[in-house]
C-alpha cells in the first residue's frame, strides 16, 4: 500500500516538474502576447502599424479556413524541399569527396571560400536574368543557401576522423572502402546532420526572401501582397506561419537525427 503511495507521489513529482518546465518554456511568448494586446487595449498603438493578437488570430483563422494560407505555405514548402534535396545530395557527395582528398580540397578551397560569403539574396538579380521569375530560379536560390552549410559541415565531419580508428584499421588491415563506409561516414554523420539542419533553416529563409522579390505565390508573396494592400494583420499571419513552419522543420530533422545517431547514448 505504501509502495503504491510512494509511486503515486513520485509520479506527481514528475508531473510537477514537467509542468514547471513547460511553463518556463512558454512564459516569454505568452507574456509578449499579453503585453501586446494590452498596448492595443489602452490605445497606445495604431492597429494599422501593430494589429492586436486578437485580430491576427481572427485573420489567421479565416486564412486557414479558406485554405489560402495552406496553399501558399504548401507552394513555399515544395520549393524548399526541392532546393534542399538538391543541396543535400550535392553537398554530401562533394563534401565526402573533398573531405577525403587533400589535393581536391586544396584545389577547390579558394573558390568555395570566395563564393560562400555571398548571401543567396545577392544572387537574386542574376537568377532573375538567368531563369526569369519561374520556379527554377527560386529553387536555385534555395539550393545556394542550403548547399554551403551542408558542404562545409560534411567536410568537417569527414576530416575529424579519429586517428585512433585509423590505427585500428591499419592493425586490422581494413580496406580503404570498408574504412570509409564503416568508420569515416558514420563518424561524420553527426556533423552532416548539423549541416542539414542549418541548411534547412537557411533554405526556409531563402524561399521567403526569393518570394518577396519575384513571385505570385508562396508565403513570401502573401506577406508582400498584404503589405501593398495595407493588410498588416495578414503580414503578421504570414510571418508567424513562417516561424512555425521553420520550427517544425527543425523538429522533424532533429527527430531523424536522433533516430540515426542512436549509438550516442546520452543524445537527448
Amino acid at each position: 500500500m505504501s509502495r503504491f503511495a510512494s509511486r503515486l507521489r513520485k509520479q506527481a513529482l514528475r508531473f510537477g516538474r514537467r509542468a514547471k518546465s513547460l511553463a518556463l518554456y512558454i512564459f516569454l511568448p505568452v507574456l509578449l502576447i499579453a503585453v501586446w494586446q494590452g498596448l492595443y487595449e489602452t490605445g497606445a498603438v495604431q492597429a494599422l502599424l501593430l494589429p492586436p493578437p486578437s485580430a491576427i488570430a481572427a485573420t489567421g483563422w479565416d486564412l486557414s479556413i479558406s485554405g489560402e494560407l495552406a496553399r501558399h505555405l504548401g507552394i513555399s514548402l515544395l520549393r524548399v524541399l526541392e532546393g534542399f534535396a538538391l543541396a543535400a545530395l550535392l553537398g554530401v557527395v562533394l563534401g565526402v569527396g573533398l573531405g577525403l582528398s587533400r589535393p581536391l580540397d586544396r584545389a577547390t578551397d579558394l573558390l568555395i571560400q570566395l563564393i560562400k560569403p555571398i548571401p543567396p539574396i545577392a544572387w537574386i538579380p542574376l537568377t532573375i536574368l538567368w531563369f526569369g521569375i519561374g520556379e527554377e530560379g527560386k529553387v536555385f536560390i534555395i539550393f545556394l543557401g542550403a548547399f554551403f552549410p551542408i558542404l562545409v559541415n560534411t567536410m568537417d565531419g569527414i576530416r575529424q576522423t579519429d586517428v585512433k580508428f585509423v590505427e585500428l584499421a591499419r592493425v586490422l588491415e581494413t580496406s580503404r572502402l570498408r574504412f570509409i563506409a564503416k568508420v569515416v561516414l558514420p563518424g561524420a554523420l553527426p556533423s552532416i546532420m548539423t549541416g542539414m539542419r542549418v541548411g534547412m533553416m537557411v533554405a526556409w529563409m531563402c524561399v521567403v526572401a526569393a518570394e518577396l522579390i519575384a513571385a505570385s505565390s508562396g508565403v513570401g508573396f502573401l506577406i508582400m501582397d498584404a503589405r501593398q494592400m495595407m493588410q498588416t494583420d495578414r503580414v503578421f499571419v504570414g510571418m508567424i506561419a513562417i516561424g512555425a513552419i521553420g520550427k517544425l522543420l527543425d523538429v522533424v530533422l532533429k527527430k531523424i537525427e536522433r533516430r540515426l545517431i542512436r549509438w550516442k547514448g546520452a543524445f537527448q
Binding site: F165, L168, V171, E173, V183, G187, W263, K264
Partner: peptide, 19 residues
C-alpha cells in the same frame, strides 16, 4: 607492417561507437 597474424588490444577499447 601490420598484419592479422597479430592481435592488438589498446589501452582504451577503441570500439566504434556506432557499431
Amino acid at each position: 607492417g601490420p598484419g592479422l597474424d597479430r592481435g592488438v588490444v589498446f589501452q582504451e577499447h577503441r570500439l566504434l561507437p556506432w557499431l
